[in-house]
């Protein structure tokens, strides 16, 4: 009887898993395998054939531009990650912990999401009239007499890419952190106060450790999106900043499938390492 039940449980589990597994194999595992395979194909100027070769891989690592893009990607990712954390954490602290009313904190979170009502590209492009040589910031600073000539480095530079990405992705940091902070029992903080801990101590010993899963989830969101970015750098850097994503776009555009695949594989490996690294910090299964 019980054996029969457990058999039925097993077959039910299996049946429930099938759609998801099939979907993942068709649309995730198979394409990744395909990319890996194509990265070893032979590319000539106008065509590609499936003769296996290491040429594309060798070309990637021999090219200063490609390797440079890898480092630019990593550098920009670290800068944006740091900025989203530095800007996002205090905001999350305010929304999730310091605002006492649940209604108000929900309203504030919704406000954070309002920019998402316009399309991603519009949000990126909106930075142009803001940062440009004759953009809003330069005009205001000149009117105030703070500067004589416009600051040119604001737009079409690495700075504008950093500003744009930080603005777009910071909310993905705020959300998970605010969620974790909101779950902290207020009594725990009061207990810490009662035991003689001042504000700083409470933050470092209680609030930060308890919100760490939120930080990790936020960091994973931001990392995954920034590492695969191409649109922001394309629109705001004036082609001066090339990320791995931009290279994939140009390679695909000129039908260089093999090189695009190489970059894709490298990006996937990089993402895997980053995500695995973050997951080592906190045992998310235990925390959530």
């Amino acid at each position: 009887m019980s054996a029969a039940t457990s058999n039925r449980d097993k077959s039910n589990t299996f049946r429930l898993l099938v759609p998801g597994v099939v979907w993942m194999i068709l649309f995730l595992v198979a394409p990744i395998m395909m990319i890996l395979y194509v990265s070893f194909w032979t590319q000539t100027t106008f065509s590609i054939n499936s003769t296996l070769t290491l040429d594309s891989w060798k070309n990637f690592f021999a090219s200063e531009a490609y390797v440079g893009a890898l480092w630019t990607t990593i550098r920009l990712w670290l800068i944006v990650l740091t900025l989203t954390l530095l800007i996002g954490y205090p905001a999350a602290l305010f929304v999730g912990l310091l605002v006492k009313s649940k209604t108000l904190s929900t309203i504030l979170l919704v406000l954070c999401v309002i920019p998402f009502w316009t399309s991603f590209l519009i949000r990126v492009l909106a930075w142009r009239p803001m940062l440009g040589k004759e953009g809003a910031i330069n005009i205001i600073l000149q009117k105030l007499g703070l500067i004589d000539s416009p600051i040119e480095v604001l737009l079409f530079s690495e700075l504008s890419v950093v500003i744009g990405m930080t603005q777009i992705y910071v909310v993905f940091m705020v959300g998970p952190i605010a969620f974790m902070l909101g779950r902290i029992d207020r009594n725990i903080i009061e207990a810490a106060r009662d035991l003689g801990a001042g504000f700083g101590r409470i933050f470092w010993k209680i609030v930060l450790p308890l919100s760490l899963p939120g930080v990790v989830v936020g960091a994973i969101f931001v990392s995954v999106m920034v590492l695969g970015e191409f649109a922001t750098s394309g629109a705001l850097s004036g082609r001066k900043v090339n990320l791995l994503g931009n290279i994939i776009v140009t390679q695909v555009g000129s039908l260089k499938w093999a090189m695009a695949s190489v970059v894709g594989v490298i990006l996937t490996i990089l993402l895997g390492i980053v995500v695995a690294g973050f997951l080592r910090i906190v045992d998310l299964k235990r925390e959530i």
Binding site: N187, I188, E190, A191, D194
Partner: peptide, 13 residues
Amino acid sequence: IGFVFQNFALFPH
């Protein structure tokens, strides 16, 4: 002054 909370409020981590 010591305070013992009804829900104990132990530090979970």
